[in-house]
Amino acid sequence: MLLINNLSFFRDDNIIFENLNLSLGNGQITQIRGKNGSGKTTFLKVILNILSSNTGEIIWEGQNVKKNIFKFYNEITYIADHNTSSRELSILDNIKFWKGLSSSNLSDDKIFSLLETFNLKKYLNTEIMYLSSGEVKKLELLRIVLEQKKIWVLDEPYNHLDDSSAEILNQTFVDHTNNNGIILFASHYNPLISKLEILDFN
């Protein structure tokens, strides 16, 4: 259960958002919808404590996250709106790095089958800089499964994705919510997910 109490954020006296309350229970998927520049990304960054809020608090399992930030981070996968993979390393190197860093115990077969579904397996030893932006985005999204965390925070996950990949992503989201996961994502795309809750930022 992730609770957001009375959260406000100002940037140079401009109010980005104010007195925001939100509770994210297990198995809940929430979309933040809003125009460009309405503060979606900023909101995600405040939740992740990259930016610190001006008022309010974020509570995870009955404890303010600022008290033990690494315990909170240990439950989170964050997919930013840009590519986090290193341009000069191959897909395999990147996957190995992410997997080791998050101490995940996903089996190699599972990873290969994931790569197969995303049509990436043939590029296993290709450097990221030779891939198309859609393929890089798919590799990024692989991290949500790879890292095996409970909370998924995603910024614009549908960018650069074709329809079939978006469908796979939706299915992954549904599977995760069925496993009591928590998903929070910002997007202006309207995905077809049945129990989607929407936080409007307009």
Binding site: L48, I50, F70, Y73, N74, I76, Y78, A80, H82, N83, T84, S85, S86, R87, W98, L101, S102
Partner: peptide, 16 residues
């Protein structure tokens, strides 16, 4: 610069 721009620094930090 590269690790900062593509956010690797944040991700490594989030892993403890």
């Amino acid at each position: 610069e590269e690790d900062f721009n593509n956010g690797v620094l944040v991700i490594i930090h989030m892993r403890g």
